[in-house]
Design a protein around this nucleic acid. Structure first.
Length: 293
DNA sequence: CCACAGGACGGCT
DNA sequence: AGCCGTCCTGTG
């Protein structure tokens, strides 16, 4: 139970350490949060538009009720997890990780809705973050449910049923390119329970990963991102170009293939591999490590 | 004009 | 089972 108080219709939570919205929302795990002004962030969680501020270990969520906060946001923002402990374990005897953690000390792994994580990361393939954000926003504006709030209009992330009933032609304007058919097929597969993703937490990580590959448009990298960023599994280490480069530069001294890196991470980081990946990834991207300019 | 971007698919050996 | 051309769109 996270202790909160209500002041003027806002929720205030004191003593939130190891959190910084910039780190959390810009480390590549999500695509819908944006900074409105200094320290003020806006995003959409379920059917709510959320505005939050953080400073001096105090989290302030505007125009929020206790119920939505406790039942949705605490889990979404992963507020009950002890990140100090994770950092301590990962840093131990690892100066590289220590530096990465110092850099991205405010990262928390968001527990996003499964359909949001899945459709977002299907769209992510062969795309950079700015463009993924554009396509995701288009998808939501076009097919999500409208949400009225004081700042204007927002849109929920369309669920599998909403996407599955669309046609390719209807999806064209969001400019997802060849990924649009993946969205449709994968949503249909999810609806038909081809993959029983709602029971994933009862299965081991290896099984769940191969299950995910049944979805059209979901390969190894996208599968790992979906599982990690929807909070289903944490002993997962998504390997993409950036991770390959940062691992080569900081740990291995050569560019290893995906398989090798997965085993390396499993051995070195174990159950905390997902957290390790986020610290390393954010560090690498912000420091432009391995970037050929 | 071409290369490539947080990859995956499908048809070929 | 592994390799490799191709996929849509935007940017450099």
């Amino acid at each position: 139970m996270v202790k909160s108080q209500i002041v003027n219709n806002d929720i205030i939570v004191d003593g939130i350490c190891d959190f910084d919205p910039r780190h959390t929302f810009e480390c590549g795990q999500c695509f819908r949060w944006r900074q409105l002004e200094d320290g003020l962030w806006q995003g959409v969680v379920r059917d709510r538009c959320v505005e939050l501020q953080w400073r001096d270990n105090r989290l302030l969520i505007h125009d929020m009720d206790e119920k939505f906060f406790q039942t949705c946001l605490v889990s979404y923002l992963d507020l009950e997890r002890n990140y100090a402990e994770i950092k301590e374990i990962l840093s131990k005897g690892d100066p590289v990780m220590e530096k990465a953690i110092e850099f991205g000390h405010g990262i928390r792994l968001l527990k996003q809705d499964f359909h949001e994580a899945m459709l977002s990361f299907i769209l992510s393939q062969n795309n950079g973050i700015p463009r993924i954000r554009q396509i995701v926003e288009k998808l939501c504006e076009s097919f999500g449910a409208p949400i009225a709030y004081k700042g204007g209009m927002a849109y929920s992330f369309p669920d599998f049923a909403q996407v599955a009933r669309l046609s390719i032609e209807a999806l064209k304007p969001i400019k997802a390119g060849y990924r649009d058919s993946y969205l449709l097929k994968a949503s249909g597969q999810a609806l038909s329970r081809l993959v029983d993703y709602e029971n994933f937490d009862k299965l081991d990580t290896g099984t769940v990963r191969t299950e995910m590959l049944k979805f059209c448009g979901v390969g190894p990298k996208v599968a790992d991102c979906i599982l990690l960023f929807s909070g289903i599994k944490y002993d997962i280490f998504p390997v993409d170009r950036w991770v390959k480069r940062v691992m080569a530069e900081l740990y291995l001294d050569y560019e290893a293939d995906t398989e090798t890196l997965s085993r390396f991470a499993a051995e070195k980081f174990g159950k905390l591999a997902g957290f390790a990946q986020q610290y390393l990834f954010y560090y690498a991207r912000e420091m432009k490590i391995g970037k050929v300019s």
